[in-house]
């Protein structure tokens, strides 16, 4: 009996020692000397700073037109779907009145990424200080390489991405098509506007000014991405005459109003209008 008690006590004090040691180890690891992240990556940024970083990437893309560089930079944010992240941020900026003017740049970059061919090579972003950490999926930095700028390819023969053609800034939009619509499945008086660049690609984030006697409304393309990035609409009041123009300039279209339509049963209703603006 006495021998058994001593044996049990022996086992318990060993376990107690282990637990005390474990507690001390965790105290040191988590409280006293936790792992310090002083050299963080953009992926770990707080969401609002990530948004600012993304805006900066889009603005730089708008300034340089270098899509490959923008892609490399976006990949650092570890977004599950970079295009969606850009589109959502653009739309949310527009909803908030676009206080920092980044909506257009974000939308342009999202648009360019959508149009870029699949498999566009993302330049490996060599760097760094922690050479074992891959900055891009599939691109592991070789420790022997010295730190380099984000755009310096690891393999020297890789050419830098070519400048992506962008529509001429300020090029005036002209009205390409205007037609009345009497579709009964659409809301009455629906004004549908489509904005395209010179290459016929939809232009998201384009500001449209609609004016009528005693009022004015500003709205943007791209807020209904399911209908197209260059699409915007507005419900016109019957018997009101509108004038429309893109905020960036271009052709002024006047005398717009909801047309009168008639169903096969002879009932009258107001149809809609479709407009297509394009850069020359």
């Amino acid at each position: 009996m006495s021998t058994e008690r001593v044996s049990n006590r022996g086992s318990w004090y060993l376990l107690t020692g282990t637990l005390i040691g474990l507690a001390l180890g965790l105290l040191v690891a988590w409280i006293l000397f936790p792992v310090e992240y002083v050299d963080t990556s953009p992926a770990s940024l707080r969401p609002d700073f990530k948004d600012q970083y993304r805006s900066m990437i889009a603005s730089a893309f708008l300034a340089t037109g270098e899509l490959g560089r923008a892609q490399s930079r976006l990949s650092l944010l570890d977004d599950a779907d970079p295009v969606q992240a850009l589109t959502l941020q653009s739309q949310s900026a527009l909803s908030a009145g676009d206080p920092d003017g980044s909506a257009y740049a974000l939308a342009r970059l999202a648009d360019a990424l959508k149009l870029s061919p699949t498999g566009v090579s993302i330049l490996p972003t060599s760097t760094p200080a922690s050479a074992t950490q891959p900055l891009l999926s599939g691109a592991t930095v070789t420790p022997a390489h010295p730190p380099a700028s984000m755009i310096t390819p690891v393999s020297s023969p890789t050419p830098r991405p070519t400048r992506t053609p962008t529509p001429t800034v300020g090029a005036a939009y002209i009205l390409i098509k205007q037609e009345d619509s009497c579709e009964t499945n659409l809301p009455e008086g629906l004004l549908q506007v489509e904005v395209q660049d010179a290459a016929g690609r939809p232009v998201p984030g384009a500001e449209i000014i609609l004016a009528w006697q005693g009022g004015e409304e500003h709205f943007f393309t791209g807020l209904k991405p399911e209908l197209g990035d260059g699409y915007a609409d507005f419900t016109m009041t019957p018997d009101t005459v509108y004038t429309i123009q893109l905020a960036s300039g271009g052709q002024l279209v006047s005398n717009l109003s909801a047309p009168s339509c008639r169903t096969s049963a002879g009932d009258n209703y107001h149809g809609g209008v479709r407009l297509l603006f394009q850069q020359p």
Binding site: Y37, V38, D39, T40, S41, P42, S44, L45, R46, P47, F49, Q52, Y53, M56, I57, S59, A60, L62, A63, T64, R73, L76, T127, P128, A129, S130, P147, S149, M150
Partner: peptide, 22 residues
């Protein structure tokens, strides 16, 4: 939820480069 001031030097430099491009 880190802040940009903790970014590694190369990322900071690239951010500044973006500002310079704009």
């Amino acid at each position: 939820n880190t802040t940009p001031d903790t970014l590694r030097a190369d990322y900071r430099s690239d951010y500044v480069l973006m500002v310079a491009e704009v």
